[in-house]
Design a protein around this nucleic acid. Sequence first.
DNA 1: TGGTTTCTTAACCGATTGATTAATTCTTTC
DNA 2: GAAAGAATTAATCAATCGGTTAAGAAACCA
Lengths: 250, 250
Amino acid sequence: MNPRRVRKPAARRAPRRAGRIAKMAQAPDFNARERLLDTAGQLMGDRHATDVSLSELAEHSGLNSALVKYYFGNKDGLLLALAERDGAVALRDLQQLLQQDLSPTEKLRRHIGGIINNFYRRPYLNRLLHSLLDSRRADSAAARQITKTFIDPVLELQRELLDQGVRAGEFRSIEPMLFYVSVLGACDHLFNARYALQHFSGRSTVSDAVRERYVAHVIDIFVNGISARPRGGAVADRRTGKSVQHSSKG
Amino acid sequence: MNPRRVRKPAARRAPRRAGRIAKMAQAPDFNARERLLDTAGQLMGDRHATDVSLSELAEHSGLNSALVKYYFGNKDGLLLALAERDGAVALRDLQQLLQQDLSPTEKLRRHIGGIINNFYRRPYLNRLLHSLLDSRRADSAAARQITKTFIDPVLELQRELLDQGVRAGEFRSIEPMLFYVSVLGACDHLFNARYALQHFSGRSTVSDAVRERYVAHVIDIFVNGISARPRGGAVADRRTGKSVQHSSKG
DNA sequence: TGGTTTCTTAACCGATTGATTAATTCTTTC
DNA sequence: GAAAGAATTAATCAATCGGTTAAGAAACCA
């Protein structure tokens, strides 16, 4: 029991036609495996959560839920495959950005914009990563896989970006790990805190206008937040460390 | 069916002794209602998630799961009560901070530190709010309640803080809603992205040292990010708006 | 004391979950 | 066209979920 790894279903054969079912005939080329991933992602995106049941998956895809076991071993295998597929796209975009001939500040701008727009297209990605990396989870092999193929590379690329900025005299020296957590958190929260936006825009969905304003805002905060400008003005005596045990919250 | 409101159990009477059960006799004064809230919060905090089942709640509290219906109507009622109890504490702290005789910048520092330390003590609070405010949820009355008693006041207090900073010449003008989302997101993500910290510190738990460093980091980013210093240095041509549809992500 | 209210319990309910099986249909190969 | 392998299906499983009930125990009030 508890099948760790499944034999590859050898997806080399010609894809089978949809036959009589053809629910939601949107498939460009019909492939049950991809279709399961697509519908899982779509369901997660619609509800901004990762809790899709196998029966839902079967209903919305027009496929049988047992195919999840056939192609992915179990439900966790499907989630892992989905996270890796979407994560790879995001990772490739970031790699391309770093290679372009732009100032580090401009790269940072586009990086932040890219994160938010990526979360907009796949609102479930961050939550899915969190879920797969949860220590409570039985399959820690999946966690190691995600860490190796996505988290670590993103961290390394961000470190590279920060280094470029420091060398160009545009950024202060920032610990990459702290940068990673704060940037991803700020970007992701736009979609977790949709509720609060009801007062801002009319609807609780994140409209294009709100998203653009939020992109500009986060860019503003972080570009100014880590810029290496001469530390002037009426602000900031740089007393950071011990300001913890004060009181307060919000 | 679907009992909206429950008659108040009139908790005026002298609390009953625990009797023979007395599992985990930690109760200062024994009160089943409070005990349910406490154990729910503790379970959520341990696993950094809000999905506690009634059977778990009964097992860890030594009480019967039917008491949830008795005291809170249903499970959502318990979650709402927990969120309101903890949220009220956080709200009060923020109110007190704003009344103190400090510079807006220093208030902002302490505010950020307070948020993070509050999330440290109650890692479930933010997720619980998100869950209760989810539009998918049946009981939208709970959402309105949370919005009115917590979200709106926090937004108003942050707006006040930002206004103070602008009047004192320390802050630029920042849209409070965008500030709210980005600050809360950056602070909360320290506990959602614990996985990534495994490389940073040894363990996947958020150590005191890491937390202090993160507090200092977020303070640094936001204090500098919204400060009204003369816009000097080699940075930032202020082209914010249309930098969306570029490419990239990370 | 007896009656009423408040509090607590064990047992049970239908619904849903992820997983598993054995049989069946399609495709490829010989 | 028959054997072999790959893909898909219906049906079922135990486990768990949140919720409900009826009855009993404890405290209160007369």
